[in-house]
Design a protein around this nucleic acid. Structure first.
Lengths: 119, 119
DNA sequence: ATACGACTTAAACCATGGTTTAAGTCAACA
DNA sequence: TGTTGACTTAAACCATGGTTTAAGTCGTAT
């Protein structure tokens, strides 16, 4: 149950401190505690939330949607159905994007093959 | 060997005409012919080039890099080695991005499972 | 003749997702 | 005691990738 600073969170996930502050300002990291000097203190729960934000970002969810999801998390168990539906829909979107990339990769492989043979 | 209009190209790839004009302005679609009235005429070769641009875009190559690639295509066979290396590097970047998305999808699946069981 | 739809342009506008800057606070160490 | 390093803020700034607007030109169907 250690608290960590923004510098440590930044190092842990390898993202700039400025990005973490930006996410907090956008409402993706609510309820972050502060020490007497006003510095952010990330609890394990906050770190887990940041990890979720990064997971959703890695799968290209827009910040506005991540905020909606986080708002639902904060709101509590009454929003579980909404969150479940959102995650299911998001999963389908991610699978579709992976399919598109995988399909497009074939076109790139064709070029690689052609250029390799033309060398 | 049919020429097609921007409207037909737009319909064929399901992208706005404005995007096609934007790509041309950015140098991704060079040497496009015009009719007497100044309207764009897309030859089969141009359509193939547009398809390549879309393929690279689908795999998230930035416009500046797509332009570099197209410039090399226009330059001719002397740039084949450069193009080959670029496509190889790009392929690795795409595979890395797909891996990250696939990995992050696991975190989403965990939420789906948890929310499903908590209903 | 005219009106419509498809096209043209340059320039302005927009959303997204940060990053950078400037000025300041604080704790700890020399 | 003073200076360094890690933090704070609000606001300005930036890149990317388009989209929209306004004003105009054609070709064709009525």
């Amino acid at each position: 149950m250690q608290y960590c600073t923004i510098g440590e969170a930044s190092a842990k996930f390898n993202i700039p401190e400025s990005t973490i502050r930006y996410y907090e300002k956008k409402g993706l990291l609510p309820l972050i505690e502060r020490d007497e000097a006003g510095r952010r203190l990330f609890s394990e729960a906050q770190i887990a939330l940041l990890e979720t934000v990064i997971c959703l970002k890695n799968t290209h969810m827009p910040i506005s949607s991540i905020k909606q999801y986080i708002d639902w998390v904060v709101e509590g168990d009454s929003t579980i159905d909404l969150r479940l539906e959102m995650m299911k829909n998001h999963k389908q979107a991610v699978l579709a994007e992976i399919s598109l990339m995988t399909e497009s990769l074939k076109g790139i492989d064709v070029k690689i093959t052609r250029y390799t043979n033309r060398k």
